[in-house]
Structure formats: structure tokens, C-alpha cells
């Protein structure tokens, strides 16, 4: 009984929050790219589904190479994390 009431209250709050945010967002425009630096031309890619993948991967390798290599280390660390937790416990004598 108590739990059901709490759940109802939480659900109502969430629905209210969603409605309020929806109203706010649609009412007050997001300042989309209002503060872009005009001296810095962006590296844009043509919106064509046949080439977009190659273009984005080229961008990744050219501009984001530090992130990519760091990401490789993150993946390595994630594998080490899973191995650390999935290790088989040796029986102690």
C-alpha cells in the first residue's frame, strides 16, 4: 500500500517534469550555434548516406587521433576489469 502510493507520486512527478520541460523547450529556443566562432570554419561533411561513414572515420583519424588511441586503452582496461571480476577463485589449502 505504502509502496504503491510512493510509486504513484514518483510517476506523477516524472510526468509533470516531462510536460514542464517540453513546454519550456518548445517555448524558449535553444541558442543553437549562436556562439560559434566565425573565424573557425567547421569541417563539414556532405549529408550523403553513401559517403558519410568514410568521411566521419577520416575525421576521427585525422583530428581525434588522441581520443581514438586513448579509447583503445579504455577498451583494454574494460577487458581487464571484466577479467578481474570473472577470475576463478583458487581454493586455498
Amino acid at each position: 500500500m505504502e509502496v504503491a502510493r510512493i510509486r504513484l507520486a514518483v510517476l506523477t512527478t516524472v510526468i509533470l517534469a516531462i510536460l514542464i520541460f517540453w513546454m519550456l523547450i518548445v517555448e524558449y529556443d535553444f541558442p543553437a550555434f549562436k556562439y560559434v566562432d566565425p573565424n573557425q570554419p567547421p569541417e563539414l561533411v556532405e549529408n550523403d548516406t553513401s559517403t558519410i561513414g568514410q568521411e566521419v572515420s577520416r575525421f576521427l583519424w585525422e583530428y581525434r587521433v588522441i581520443d581514438l588511441i586513448a579509447q583503445a586503452f579504455v577498451l583494454f582496461a574494460a577487458a581487464a576489469c571484466c577479467m578481474a571480476l570473472l577470475r576463478i577463485e583458487e581454493r586455498k589449502r
Binding site: P42, L44, V45, D67, C81
Partner: peptide, 29 residues
């Protein structure tokens, strides 16, 4: 996608591509 008409900004895409793999790592753990 909304940066300019007919073009996309690859910065957002590359962030998402990498972030997906991090989310995968966290989910696995």
C-alpha cells in the same frame, strides 16, 4: 545534423561513436 543545411558536423558523430563503446564497457561491467 542541424549545424548547416545539407551538411553534418563530424565532431558530434565522432563523439557519439566513441561514447557508444564506453557505454558498452560500463554495461558489460
Amino acid at each position: 545534423a542541424y549545424r548547416s543545411v545539407g551538411y553534418i558536423d563530424p565532431l558530434g558523430h565522432s563523439v557519439v561513436i566513441m561514447s557508444i563503446s564506453f557505454a558498452g564497457c560500463v554495461t558489460a561491467l
